[in-house]
């Protein structure tokens, strides 16, 4: 165990709470994000990801909790935090009736960027929109709008990037480009907090946090999260796995059964009980393989547990 150096923490918030009209959206979230991290913020829709991000960048005032972001106090120095943060909203939120260039220029001016013309030019070249700079932003396709939005977050070269579901509705090629860019920025020292509900994107992050109903369920590197879950998984392949899935899901020792393409992931917390439970189903037709659980298995099980906990 290493102590984290206080100065190295870009985001260090504790006990953030926010409710809207009496309904808690975020209920005591604490996060520590170190410089250069790509921090994946995962959770189902409506779990409080956006609200947490908005509190971190000073758009919302937390009802309770405190902390620092980029070394500035969350509650009293929101202005300074904003100056050095790039926030990409979930939906396209640049001006559709301004051109690509006008949008970038506007953002650059708002942040007081020096050598504005050169910076905007550079930005346009990087995202590959140089020859479409006079097009109205509203006429761009969804994928290009996302690229423009990312460019707008980067125009003032912020130390912290807050990206709220940046790859939602983007084609695989653009997603790939997008993650390449994030890795590049990370290597240059930019810290990124990115929310997503694509599990495969979690693999791009070196740190993860999983939030459900406004509460953090788990936090750590992908390996840590898998290890700490205490989950074991069998992968079953073979014909007719769908009927098999239904039979397996109620068994003692089986916490969760999920289908991935042509294979089943059968997960449980007790290795022996799971093995015992599966025994009668082992036949020549199916291949049973003991394996490490994937992040998705872990998160789904966590969610089930959390749900059961609330029920009680």
């Amino acid at each position: 165990m290493t102590m984290t150096d206080k100065n190295d923490l870009v985001i260090d918030v504790e006990g953030l709470k926010k409710s809207f009209k009496g309904k808690p959206a975020v209920n005591g979230v604490s996060l520590k994000v170190r410089r250069g991290d790509i921090f994946g913020f995962l959770g189902p829709n409506g779990s409080g990801k956006t609200t947490t991000i908005r509190m971190i960048c000073g758009l919302l005032t937390p009802d309770a909790g405190h902390g620092r972001c980029l070394g500035h106090d969350l509650l009293t120095e929101a202005g300074r935090i904003k100056q050095n943060t790039g926030y990409m909203t979930q939906r396209f939120s640049l001006y559709e009736d301004l051109t690509v260039r006008e949008n970038l220029d506007f953002i650059a001016r708002m942040y007081g960027v020096l050598h504005r013309k050169e910076t905007v030019d550079e930005c346009l070249t990087t995202i590959g929109l140089k020859d479409q700079q006079d097009k109205l932003a509203g006429t761009l396709s969804g994928g290009w709008q996302r690229r423009l939005a990312l460019a707008a977050c980067l125009v003032h070269k912020p130390g912290l990037l807050l990206l709220d579901e940046p790859t939602a509705g983007v084609d695989p090629r653009a997603r790939c480009d997008f993650w390449d860019r994030i890795h590049e920025l990370s290597s240059e020292g930019t810290t990124t907090l990115v929310s997503t509900h694509y599990m495969d994107e979690a693999e791009h992050c070196n740190k993860l946090a999983y939030i459900v109903s406004g509460e953090l369920l788990t936090e750590g590197s992908p390996e840590e999260i898998v290890k700490e879950s205490g989950l074991v998984t069998w992968i079953v392949t073979g014909p007719d796995i769908w009927p098999l899935a239904r039979e397996l899901s109620g068994l003692p020792g089986v916490a969760h059964v999920a289908a991935f393409g042509a294979s089943l992931h059968v997960s449980g917390y007790d290795e022996a009980a799971l093995r015992e439970g599966l025994k009668p189903f082992i036949d020549a037709k199916h291949r049973f393989e003991f394996s490490k659980p994937g992040l998705e298995d872990v998160f789904i099980c966590l969610m089930k547990q959390a749900g059961a906990g609330r029920m009680r």
């Binding site: 758009l59 202005g79 939120s93 001006y95 953002i107 708002m110 942040y111």
Partner: peptide
């Protein structure tokens, strides 16, 4: 309505 308010608010503009 268009969400641009969020962008505007996330800049240091007062």
């Amino acid at each position: 309505e268009r969400g641009t308010m969020e962008t505007l608010l996330s800049t240091p503009a007062r």
